[in-house]
Design a protein around this nucleic acid. Structure first.
Length: 236
DNA sequence: CTCAGTGCCCTTTCGAGAAT
DNA sequence: ATTCTCGAAAGGGCACTGAG
C-alpha cells in the first residue's frame, strides 16, 4: 500500500509535461488531500519511501515532496521528534535540499517543540557543512512571521555564536540569513552580535547584515531608483 | 596566480490585498 | 476560509576588482 502510493506520486511527477516548483507542488497538494484521513505512521512511512527513491534515483524533487507531505499533514508533523528529524535529513547534499528540510520540517518542528535545543546544537557542531547549515536555517523558522515565529533571540543567537567563525561559504550565507531574519524582532541583539564578532565574521555576513539593519534590505540598490536624470545606471 | 570582497543577475518565495 | 495576484525581496551564483 505504502509502496504503491509512493510509486504513484513518483509516476505523477514523472508524467508532468514540465517539472517546475508550481507543477510539482500541485501534485503534492492533490496527494495531501487524499492523505487527509491517513494516520501519522502511514505518512511518515510514505515519506521514508519517497526519500529512498530519491536517493536511489537521484531525484531531489521527491525529497522535497516527502517533506511537504509531512508538513501538510497535522498528525504526521506532530509526530516528529529528534530521532525522526535526523533520519529524514540524512543525505542532504546541497543548499536547496538543506533549505527544504530546514524550512519545511526542522525549523517549524523546533518552533513547535518537537525538536530539542540539544539536537540543533549537535547539528551546529557537525563536521558536515550541510548539517551546520541546517542548524542555522532552522533558526529562520523561529523568526519568520509566516511560520508563526514570534522572535526567539536566545535560541537564534546560540546557534549563530557557534558558527560565527565558520569558513564554509554555505554556512556563512546561512548565518547572514539567520541574523537578518532576527532583525525583524531584535535589531539591537543583531547589532551587538556584529560588534562582538567583528573580527571573525566573513565580510559577506557583515555587509549583508549591516545593510539589513540600516536599509531593511540585503542588497540595497545602488540608487533608490531615482528616475536617473542622466542615464548613469544600468551598468553591468 | 590566488582569493577575499563586491555588485548584480535569475528564479522562487514572501506578504498583503482582492477575489471567490 | 481558501485561492489568486503581483511587486518586493529572498535565495545562491558568478564575474569582476584589487590586494597580496
Amino acid at each position: 500500500m505504502l509502496n504503491s502510493t509512493a510509486a504513484q506520486i513518483a509516476a505523477d511527477i514523472t508524467a508532468l509535461p514540465q517539472r517546475t516548483t508550481a507543477t510539482v507542488r500541485k501534485v503534492r497538494r492533490q496527494h495531501s488531500r487524499a492523505l487527509r484521513t491517513a494516520d501519522a505512521a502511514f505518512v511518515i512511512g510514505l515519506a521514508r519511501d519517497l526519500l529512498a527513491r530519491d536517493s536511489r534515483e537521484g531525484r531531489s524533487g521527491l525529497r522535497w515532496v516527502a517533506y511537504e507531505l509531512i508538513r501538510n499533514h497535522k498528525p504526521a508533523f506532530a509526530s516528529l521528534n529528534d530521532a525522526l528529524l535526523e533520519e529524514l535529513g540524512q543525505g542532504m547534499h546541497s543548499w536547496d535540499t538543506v533549505d527544504d528540510f530546514s524550512r519545511t520540517l526542522s525549523g517549524p518542528a523546533w518552533l513547535h517543540g518537537m525538536a530539542s535545543d540539544a539536537l540543533i546544537h549537535r547539528w551546529a557542531a557537525s563536521k558536515d557543512l550541510w548539517w551546520r547549515r541546517a542548524a542555522l536555517v532552522s533558526t529562520v523558522g523561529l523568526n519568520m512571521r509566516s511560520y508563526g515565529g514570534a522572535g526567539d533571540t536566545p535560541r537564534t543567537m546560540a546557534i549563530c555564536e557557534m558558527l560565527a567563525a565558520d569558513r564554509e561559504d554555505m554556512v556563512q550565507k546561512a548565518l547572514s540569513w539567520a541574523l537578518r531574519e532576527l532583525v525583524w524582532h531584535d535589531p539591537a541583539a543583531v547589532q551587538s552580535f556584529l560588534d562582538t564578532h567583528d573580527q571573525h565574521l566573513a565580510a559577506r555576513v557583515k555587509r549583508e547584515v549591516r545593510a539589513k539593519l540600516t536599509t531593511g534590505l540585503k542588497n540595497p540598490r545602488r540608487k533608490p531608483s531615482v528616475p536617473s536624470p542622466l542615464g548613469t545606471d544600468k551598468g553591468r
